[in-house]
Write a protein that binds this DNA or RNA. Sequence first.
DNA 1: TCCTTTTACATACGTAGCGTATGCATATTG
DNA 2: CAATATGCATACGCTACGTATGTAAAAGGA
Lengths: 198, 198
Amino acid sequence: MAGKRRAEMMQETREKLIGAARKAFAEKGYAGASMDDLTAAVGLTRGALYHNFGDKRGLLAAVVNTIDGEMAECARRAALKAADPWEGLLAEGVAYIEMALDPEVQRIVLLDGPAVLGDPSQWPSQNACLAFTIEAVEGLIADGVMKPVDAEAAARLLNGAALNAALWIAASEAPEAVLAKAVEAFRCLAAGFLARPR
Amino acid sequence: MAGKRRAEMMQETREKLIGAARKAFAEKGYAGASMDDLTAAVGLTRGALYHNFGDKRGLLAAVVNTIDGEMAECARRAALKAADPWEGLLAEGVAYIEMALDPEVQRIVLLDGPAVLGDPSQWPSQNACLAFTIEAVEGLIADGVMKPVDAEAAARLLNGAALNAALWIAASEAPEAVLAKAVEAFRCLAAGFLARPR
DNA sequence: TCCTTTTACATACGTAGCGTATGCATATTG
DNA sequence: CAATATGCATACGCTACGTATGTAAAAGGA
């Protein structure tokens, strides 16, 4: 298939670089990942990198964007499977906790991402996860299920709690046991937003 | 005052380096801070640095340790001023949110710290803030004020929520307004842990 | 008091890795 | 079929980390 168009070729190299970066950043961390090694792993050089992404940060941003999208998709699926909207919100939080157990997510999105790119809410991806959570919260407030607090504030606190729990679990020696405790506490905590206790 | 003992001198250079590092890390970020510049700013060279702290990470760890201690002290004071233990826990969370508005705390402890040193709970300082919160939670559970959830899980979720709120506030354009929203939502959320609604 | 040893820090060096400037080959345009 | 633009490689300089080595002063012993 030598008959590929120029744009297709470029798209392909971008994907190759993002894939390699995902691995390298996850394994070595952002600072520890060498651009020379990373590009060579897919048969390219740093030339391709700087042409396509500007600099090292640009590549990280692209990787974060990709993973963030996958996470939002995963959270959405978890929420849709739930019995009602409130359970959906909880399922979303739990899904978030579970996703954050993935070393790739942890290292790239939760640790290096914020440190290198700044606050997640300022990312171009606008943190798809958060956006989805805000939507859910707004619906629940409108339906009177949740107390009328600021939707963004509620979403951020919930996501923040889940995120921190995930870091804790991942660093612990008995992830499964800790996960159970964290999920229980999370459900309990979230209930504080309920207009009427269940 | 040339009559200083050796140990005192060393303690002094350690403090000078930590002070300079605090400034440099806060202003330029961990990766962007040059050890040459940083040490020269207090009339030393990298020799002193590597002798006292091993490497760049070691210096960051020392700085984080210092700030973490100050934060715990601040949280403790806030909690003691409250009317009762439950309000104390809330005050602690709010204090945590407010402290995280300090750019120095944000950049060093919340962003670069976890990225470079790993999960905060594994730090030698053992995250003084968290330890104090856990203590408070255990007391509240014993007194039947809070539901009998896992104390560490509850403390981590609360701190996580507060931390994330702080990052949000700091990045926002109207910190004061956002702070109010966040604090309200935080109080509401925390109420989920109450055995009996108030 | 004088000699020895340790220690706290400075100086010098090697090296990795980022960003940029330049070159080249292929694809697109007229 | 020329002319231009583009995607990527090659080459270079510079910054900054970590280490190896040097040195002067303090601590300790006789």
